[in-house]
Design a protein around this nucleic acid. Structure first.
Lengths: 250, 250
DNA sequence: TAGTGGTCTAGACCACTCC
DNA sequence: GAGTGGTCTAGACCACTAA
């Protein structure tokens, strides 16, 4: 049916549309041919045209706007400097680690909840404490230029943090790490474990994710001088918004 | 229509199926209710049942096997130690950086192509050379336990690598980095830039990716003592197969 | 061979956007 | 108000899997 010997109509149509995008014939934000146009041009049924457009959306290269059309998707990811932003010189000087990221536009915090809770299983495992151990949980969402880009939950043992500014909504200059340092629990080492996956329904809502957008899930562990874990963070980033950057010596 | 006030039938059905998975009623590898079962149980048309099953597949939590059914998907990712594996002590001792990863099963290389080519634009940019500058391109696929898990292309300036073992199919113990060191271009610093996205059609084929599986794309740059770039690698990993691990000091 | 998912048709009604 | 994508129905044929 086509040069590649692909017979399935929806794949054939999707290939055509993808070629129009890759060639530059269609650019960021341009409208793709609609269902009706495809039905007419290729002589196919509505569901077949829809399947072709759905393929592109699941690839993350197109996005539908109800009542308007299907459009070529644009990406403007932000560089997040994994180790540089967590250097002592950053939070030690009272700056936010967010200042290091190459965000274009103001960063805000949203939906902030600070509570003392029993440690959930995975956090307890990373903290090296029995499940259910009291921890301060800091749950919040980050917005850049009004767009939600990240959901983050930090867990700090209540033994360390209860009754300190870490349990307040505003942790002050330098954030959690500066306060931990003042309390004699300065982080000296971090690990980050990164995986990518498709979002849950809840994440799609919280991060306003378009179809075909994965999330990057980061589990960060902060170690103090004596090797004890002082904080664990579970971060969920929109993959469309971030490039993660790490640098290290050989 | 349901507790959440969700009226769309396919979403409602998908929610039910997802709940069966999350609750443990259905476990890894178990078969989900089929199209016919769903049509009957919910009194919906075939396309509606299909849409519900497609939702779960696009989330990456179910996988269809034609003629057999739709099954709960299993994950067994491997931990990849971003900086530890690139330490001088690894390749300097003649070991492969792959030995550091927590693979369960033998790792193999596949579809290896070594050529001298003009540097593609993005590689040239990272190498800090004009586009089209001659480079040795090493293109290969990695398999673990017979399953393709990663596609990798390394670019090394031909000025450095032409006529050396780096341009051979087998680069010898310690790989490219050990050879570069022997040539007086030992890498002393690396950067890795990570993003996640849905795969292209070609990547779906090359990595045998199930629907709903993102890829992790890593651009690695190796710097020599004088700050010059001696190698650039573009890695494409199946997100279902990998957890990336980095550690660094505050 | 019976059952499965993959593809496709030809209709329908709806909510939404844009002019 | 015309056009758009979202949802849904009720059929059909096919290739594939598994008993």
């Amino acid at each position: 049916m086509d040069a590649r010997g692909e017979a399935r109509k929806h794949v054939r149509i999707a290939d055509d549309l993808r070629a129009m995008i890759r060639s530059g014939e269609l650019r960021d934000g341009d409208r793709l041919p609609g269902e009706n146009t495809i039905m007419e041009r290729y002589g196919v049924a509505r569901m077949t045209a829809r399947q072709a457009l759905a393929d592109l959306q699941n690839e993350g290269i197109a996005v539908a706007r109800k009542g308007a059309g299907v459009f070529v998707r644009t990406f403007r990811p932000v560089r997040r400097f994994g180790n540089r932003r967590l250097g002592r010189d950053v939070w030690g000087s009272g700056r936010s680690i967010w200042d290091v990221d190459e965000t274009q536009g103001p960063a805000e915090v949203d939906r902030l909840t600070v509570r003392e809770v029993p440690a959930p299983d995975d956090a307890a495992r990373l903290l090296g404490v029995p499940p259910g151990t009291p921890v301060i949980s800091r749950d919040r969402r980050y917005l850049v230029a009004g767009r939600p880009v990240q959901h983050a939950v930090a867990y700090i043992p209540a033994v360390i943090a209860a009754g300190t500014p870490i349990a307040d909504e505003d942790t002050g200059p330098g954030g959690i790490y500066a306060r931990l340092a003042e309390l004699g629990h300065a982080p000296v080492k971090f690990t980050e474990e990164i995986r990518a996956r498709m979002p849950t329904r809840e994440e799609v809502e919280a991060l306003a994710l378009a179809p075909g957008t994965p999330v990057v899930s980061i589990a960060r562990v902060a170690f103090a001088q004596d090797g004890h874990v002082v904080e664990v963070s579970q971060l969920t980033l929109s993959a469309a918004e971030y490039i993660l950057h790490y640098e290290f010596d050989a």
